[in-house]
Design a protein around this nucleic acid. Sequence first.
DNA 1: CCTCCTTTTTGAACGTGTTCAGAACTGAGT
DNA 2: ACTCAGTTCTGAACACGTTCAAAAAGGAGG
Lengths: 222, 222
Amino acid sequence: MSKSEQTRQRVADVALRMFREVGFEKTTMRAIASEAGVSVGNAYYYFASKDELVQELYRQVQDEHAALAEKALTEQSAAGRTDLASRLKATLHTGLDVMAPYHRFGADFIATAIRPTSAVNPFSSDSAEAREASLAIFKKTVEGAKPQAPKKLRSDLPELLWLGYMGITLFWVYDTSEGQRRTRRLVDGAAPLMARGLQLARIPGVGKIIDEVLDLSRSVRK
Amino acid sequence: MSKSEQTRQRVADVALRMFREVGFEKTTMRAIASEAGVSVGNAYYYFASKDELVQELYRQVQDEHAALAEKALTEQSAAGRTDLASRLKATLHTGLDVMAPYHRFGADFIATAIRPTSAVNPFSSDSAEAREASLAIFKKTVEGAKPQAPKKLRSDLPELLWLGYMGITLFWVYDTSEGQRRTRRLVDGAAPLMARGLQLARIPGVGKIIDEVLDLSRSVRK
DNA sequence: CCTCCTTTTTGAACGTGTTCAGAACTGAGT
DNA sequence: ACTCAGTTCTGAACACGTTCAAAAAGGAGG
């Protein structure tokens, strides 16, 4: 590893550790630089802004989620539990597991991420790669499920679930209950309800409405 | 009006005008103070932070929404249009109308509002009053509708619709289409779908699931 | 070893939101 | 008129994220 890469890595490591330990706002660029043994300007040579350090954090959280979810899904399959509700629970709970150390400061990260101009914004094109990776987890969750979801929903489902996951994350940020158990309960309750709700798509009257909802959702996404 | 009140008002007026004209980030406290003819410290004597000025903005937007929605709903009723879909459209569209001048900077406001520590956060206790006022608009929207919504949903409906409105607002912030017409289309499409969707609650199989969704939503709100 | 270009590093400086010690003003009581 | 407590106002100062001109280090070719 070149000296340049080492410096970059050291800055990133220090930043992420400090984010975890003292939070986003209290971690100043000066503190990061000093702790990493470089000047402020040098930290900026590698990361154009504090936001870019958050981006680094997201990447790491996401990689970890992908690995943990994959592992949990595989174990469940081996044990014969292949229903969508169980798989969804596994994916959502592992997501919460990975984010847990950052809960105290989650709000700051969300505030950063939500700006359309932010590179970390989950809907922006800058983070397309990260979003695809996250979507892939939900694709895997849905595709490996038996019985499969109703055909008409299958293709849109991962994206809708991912959107739901964003909502759950928002809920989690505001969840001050101990260990965020209310969010855990939400996941445990919502996963089976969603799985069962999907079956309703087979009832004629419901199916028609769902078609229209999907049409609208597609047209509005352009 | 006392001199103190005058100063406070002048600061607020200048701030809101500048927010509208040049945006949240570009409106500095120094500029507000200078434009209002007071010192920076004096502006802080009346508003503890820049966020509190945003709170002032929210209050104003909300009052305007309440008035416009009320007017639109009354006119519709007079013309004999009392179905929920039409009423919902009126409420949502007037909301978008009121926010329109701020669209360019909406993202900054959202980023400010989303911090749990922010006084402007729509879920925080600090903004309970504002939230109640907003909820009241949706209560009126639902209650004045004929035919009425299914009984089991009636009490939770305003809160759920309000939540949906938050989602639509988020969508609107990210909507860069001209005049935010995609958001308008979303409202036009979603309002009738929601109204028709509610009727499905009367189908036995669907009703049971809805009961459980409501139970979960209540238990998780604690 | 020297030259010359690129990459890396420095730290002072800028503009920001916010704080605070104290100055200026106000008005009620004497 | 004078006092004095409370209210209103001031502007310098602080810490922050970020920028930038210039210094230092590295490295390729002679």
